[in-house]
Structures are given as C-alpha cells and as structure tokens.
C-alpha cells in the first residue's frame, strides 16, 4: 500500500479508530530509540546528505532546557516530512511532521533538551533524505 494512500485513509477515520490502531500509526521503535542512529534506522533513513536549503532557527544559548523554541523550514521542493532530533536526549527523536494538501514544510514548536546538544533535522523528499543541524548550549537541562 502506498504511504499517501495509507495516510489519507487513516486520517479520515482517525476519530473512530481504537487505541491499538493509533498505537500502530505511531512509530514506537523510532521514538523509543536511545541513539540517533537507531532512531534514523527506524525512520528508515538509509542515507542522507547535508543541505543548505533547510533553515533552523533556535537559540545559540538556551537558559531553560525544558522549553527551547525551534523553527524549521525546508526550501527543498516536494518536501514531505520534517523530523527533529536532539542527539543528547535520552530518546533523541522529538517529532516527525508530515505535510500534505498545501501545508508548507515549516513548523515552529517548543522542545526539551537534556543538555547542550546538536539539534538535527531530517527532511524527507520522496526516497531521499536531507539534513541540517545546529548546536544549542543549554544551561539548565529540561528532561525530567
């Protein structure tokens, strides 16, 4: 089954789905992975290349790791998804955003950072993956 088809179907009937079906949608293995390579593997990222067409706006220094605002924009045509990872967090995968039907590949959200770490972004374009990263210094860790 094609992913698009699968997504469309699942979203349309989301409210009616039992909990098990929702759990099946959520990428448990990737979100529970304890390292970036393991999370990548479960996101099925085979290989990736750095891209200057991914913009990350995040503070150089974050006083409170419990709330770090991150803005990500992909300027790569046909971007389907943006994943956000923090390499030093106990579970590095923070979020995976999938866009369709005229949603721009752009998000702003607030994340937890356990300590100073590399913020990594993986952008999915068809079968290709692109990355960018930014170092964030954290004064007070926020992964309680």
């Amino acid at each position: 089954m094609q992913r698009r088809h699968f997504l469309g179907m699942s979203l349309a009937s989301l409210l009616l789905l039992p909990l098990q079906a929702l759990a099946a949608l959520w990428n448990k293995a990737a979100f529970e992975a304890a390292t970036v390579p393991a999370a990548r593997q479960h996101l099925q990222v085979a290989s990736e290349q750095p891209s200057s067409e991914i913009d990350i706006v995040a503070p150089d220094f974050a006083e409170n790791g419990a709330v770090v605002q991150v803005e990500v924009r992909s300027r790569i045509a046909n971007t389907e998804a943006i994943a956000i990872l923090v390499d030093k967090n106990p579970t590095p995968l923070i979020a995976n955003f999938m866009f369709s039907n005229g949603a721009d590949p752009y998000v702003v959200t607030r994340i937890k950072m356990a300590e100073s770490a590399q913020l990594q972004v993986i952008v999915k374009v068809g079968e290709h993956y692109f990355t960018a990263s930014k170092q964030v210094q954290v004064s007070l860790g926020g992964c309680g």
Partner: peptide, 12 residues
C-alpha cells in the same frame, strides 16, 4: 488532512 505530527516525550 494537511498535517500529521508524531511526537515523542521531547515536546515541551
């Protein structure tokens, strides 16, 4: 549908 987000525990 326009956006599907999967989140872990790292969202504030």
């Amino acid at each position: 549908p326009v956006l599907e987000a999967q989140w872990g525990t790292g969202i504030s």
